[in-house]
Amino acid sequence: MIRSIGSRADTVSRDRATAIALAKAEAARDCWVVEGIYGWLVREIQDRATTLIWICLDEAECSANIRQRGTRGGASAESFNALLDWADSYRSRDGSSSFSAHRLIFDEFAGAKEVLPTRRAVKAFADNLALRRS
């Protein structure tokens, strides 16, 4: 099951306490995956993780993907452009959703870990998982 933890289906951010509670509930399961950019949320559940996969694509590739998928949840042109600016600033901005914060989480993680820097690497990783499951 895929569940949106950091935001609701309509892309409105959840309050922090609710997001943390949902993430902790998912992380209490035997098998779980968290995907996203919320470093502050990862910090809340990383002690339950056995593996950390960092999908660290180039900002230009992320922005191109955002442009391709277009606006969502009734977003305005202004908020869409703000999202593109935010994606483009990944390596230069500060905060828990920045490259430097993600690098620190990755570097400090004691379990198995891997960086996937390209779409090709992501696809190869997913294909390998699929082969191991069959």
Rank of each mutant, 00 (worst) to 15 (best):
A126V: 15
E108N: 15
M1D: 14
A19R: 09
E44Y: 09
G111M: 03
G36E: 09
L57E: 04
S98C: 11
D127M: 08
E108F: 14
F80V: 03
N81E: 15
R67P: 00
R67K: 10
G6K: 01
W54F: 10
C31D: 11
A87V: 14
E61T: 14
R132F: 04
G74L: 06
A17L: 13
A28L: 07
Q68S: 12
D30G: 12
A60Q: 12
A49Q: 05
K113N: 06
I105L: 15
S134M: 13
S100R: 14
A17R: 15
S7D: 06
S100F: 06
S97D: 14
S79H: 07
G39R: 01
R3K: 02
A75C: 04
A25P: 00
R67L: 09
R29W: 02
I5V: 15
I53H: 00
A27F: 05
A101Q: 09
M1R: 08
E26W: 03
L22G: 01
A126E: 13
L57N: 01
K113T: 05
C31P: 01
I66L: 12
G36P: 05
D15T: 07
D58Q: 06
H102G: 05
R72I: 07
A110W: 02
A124Q: 14
V42Q: 08
I55F: 02
R72N: 05
A27Y: 10
A17S: 13
D58L: 08
D85L: 08
K24F: 02
G70W: 12
A19D: 08
L104Y: 02
A101Y: 10
R91P: 03
P117A: 07
T11F: 15
L104A: 15
A21G: 03
R72S: 03
E61R: 09
A121G: 03
A110H: 02
L52V: 06
V42T: 05
I37N: 04
R103P: 00
S76E: 03
Y38K: 09
T51F: 08
A77M: 07
A25L: 10
G111V: 12
E108C: 15
R29S: 13
S100L: 10
A19L: 04
F125S: 02
A82R: 07
S4F: 12
R16K: 08
L83R: 15
S97L: 04
R132C: 06
D58W: 07
A112I: 14
A77T: 08
R72L: 07
R120L: 13
N81W: 09
D94K: 15
T118S: 15
A19V: 06
